[in-house]
Computed example of a mutant assay.
Amino acid sequence: MTIELSALVKRADHYLNAAKIADYCPNGLQVEGRGHVRKIISGVTASQELIDAAVAAEADLILVHHGYFWKGENPCVVGMKQRRLKTLLRHDISLLAYHLPLDVHPLVGNNVQLAERLGIAVEGPLEPENSRNVALVGSLPEALSAAEFVARVASVLGREPLLVDGQKPIRRVGWCTGGGQGYIDQAIAAGVDLYLTGEASEQTFHSARENGISFIAAGHHATERYGVQALGDYLAREFNIEHVFTDCPNPI
Rank of each mutant, 00 (worst) to 15 (best):
M1G: 11
I3H: 11
L8A: 02
H14C: 12
H14V: 05
H14Q: 12
I21T: 04
A22L: 13
N27C: 10
G28Q: 05
V31N: 03
G33E: 04
H36Q: 14
H36F: 11
I41E: 09
S47L: 06
L50K: 05
A53D: 08
L61M: 14
I62N: 06
L63H: 01
H65S: 10
H66T: 09
F69I: 05
N74Y: 00
C76G: 00
V78M: 03
R84Y: 06
T87G: 06
R90T: 14
Y98V: 13
N110I: 07
G119K: 02
L126Q: 04
P128S: 09
N130P: 01
S131D: 15
S131P: 10
L136K: 08
S139A: 13
P141W: 03
E142L: 01
A146F: 08
E148T: 09
F149H: 08
V156P: 02
V156G: 04
G158Y: 06
E160Q: 13
V164W: 05
I170F: 01
V173L: 04
G174Q: 04
W175S: 02
W175H: 05
G179S: 13
G179V: 13
G182H: 04
I184S: 03
I184R: 02
A187T: 05
V192I: 12
D193P: 00
D193I: 10
L194T: 04
L194S: 05
T197I: 03
G198T: 01
E199M: 05
A200G: 08
E202I: 07
Q203D: 15
N211W: 02
G212K: 07
A218H: 03
T223I: 11
Q229I: 15
A230T: 10
F239K: 14
N240R: 12
N240M: 02
T246L: 10
D247W: 00
D247L: 01
